[in-house]
Simulated assay, not measured.
Amino acid sequence: METTAQLLGEPLPVELMNTIWADRDGVHDALADPDGTRAWLRAVAPRIALLADHDLAGITAADTADLAGRLVLLRDALRRLAAEATGDPRTAAASAIRERDAAIAAVNQAAGAVPTWSALTWVAGEAPVRHVRTQGHAAGAAVSAIAEEAIGMFSRGDEAGLRACLAPGCVLYFVKDHPRREWCSPSCGNRARSARHYRRHRTGGSD
C-alpha cells in the first residue's frame, strides 16, 4: 500500500502536516488507519536515520495503532503552530488542537517520548560511521525525531519561510525555498491561476 499523502520533498515536520490533504471530495487524513500510518512511515523511512523497512515489518498491530495516535497528535500540534506562524486564514485547514500552548506541550511530549543518541563504529581500514540508537522501537523513535526536527525548525526561525498554500481547496503547507514560489505544487499554481483568470473574465477587470 502506498501513502495517500502528497510528499513534496518538504522538511519532515511539514510532510507530516501534509498528511491532511484535500481534493474535490473533501479533506482526507492519510493517517486515518493503521495501514495508512504504516504506508506513510514506509514512504519517509529513507529520510529518518533510525528507521528501516524491517523496523516497520516487526511492529505489531497494537504498536501501529499507538504510532497512529502519536503521529496524529504531533501532526495536529504542528498544524496549529504552522497556522500561528503563517497567519493561515483557511477554515478547512484548521487543526483539531485549538490552543497554542496545548500544541507546544504536545510537540515537547513527542520529542521526549523515545530518547535517541549517537554511537560511533570504526572498523579497521574503513571510515568511521555514525549510527543512531534508540530506547524502544525505532518507529516510535521516528515520531520523536520528527518532533525534534520541528522544534529546531521553529526555534531557529526557519518557520519564517513556512507558508500556507492558498490555492483554492488546498490545505497543505510548504517552505518557500524560492522567491517566486507561491504554491505548494505546480498543480496548485495552475488551479490558482485558473481561478484568477475566471475572476478577471467574470468581472471584466483585473484582481
Rank of each mutant, 00 (worst) to 15 (best):
A102Q: 09
M153A: 13
G152F: 11
G157E: 08
G69I: 03
G140M: 07
I146S: 06
V129A: 14
A93P: 07
R100I: 15
A111P: 05
R98I: 12
G69A: 06
A82M: 08
T91L: 09
A96N: 04
A111C: 06
A62F: 04
E99C: 07
R163S: 12
R163I: 13
V114E: 03
R100W: 07
E182W: 07
I104S: 04
L67W: 03
L81P: 01
H178M: 05
P179S: 08
V171R: 06
A142N: 02
N108D: 12
S95A: 12
W117H: 08
C184Q: 12
A85C: 05
T121F: 05
R156C: 06
G112T: 09
E148N: 09
R180C: 00
T91K: 03
D101N: 14
P168E: 11
R163W: 10
A164K: 13
L67C: 02
R181N: 12
P186W: 01
V114L: 02
V175E: 09
S144L: 01
T64W: 03
T60K: 01
Q109T: 15
A103W: 01
V107Y: 02
V175A: 05
A93E: 02
I104R: 11
G112D: 12
E159A: 15
S155Y: 12
L166M: 13
A119M: 09
A142F: 03
W122S: 12
A61L: 10
T86I: 06
A167F: 08
I104H: 01
D66Q: 10
P115V: 01
A105V: 08
R98G: 12
G169W: 07
E126P: 00
W122Y: 06
L166K: 02
S144K: 02
V123N: 08
T134R: 13
G136T: 10
V107L: 08
P186Q: 10
L78H: 04
I151K: 12
L67H: 04
L71Q: 02
F154R: 14
V175S: 03
A105F: 01
A142R: 02
N108W: 00
H137F: 14
C170H: 11
P179C: 03
P186G: 07
G112E: 10
A138Y: 08
E99H: 14
E182T: 14
P115F: 05
S155D: 15
E149I: 07
A138H: 14
G169A: 09
I97S: 00
A167T: 07
V143I: 08
A77M: 04
S118D: 03
A147S: 11
T121I: 13
A110I: 08
R130Q: 12
R79V: 08
P128K: 11
A62H: 04
E182P: 00
L162E: 07
L74P: 11
P179A: 04
C184V: 14
A94W: 03
L67K: 01
V114P: 00
R133S: 09
A150H: 04
I146D: 05
R100S: 13
R181P: 13
R181Y: 06
V72T: 15
T116F: 00
P89D: 00
C170M: 12
A110H: 06
A111L: 05
K176N: 14
S155Q: 14
A150V: 05
T91W: 00
G125S: 04
A124E: 15
E148V: 13
V175R: 11
G140R: 10
I97N: 00
P128S: 12
A164D: 09
A77S: 10
G69E: 05
A147H: 05
E126H: 09
G140Q: 06
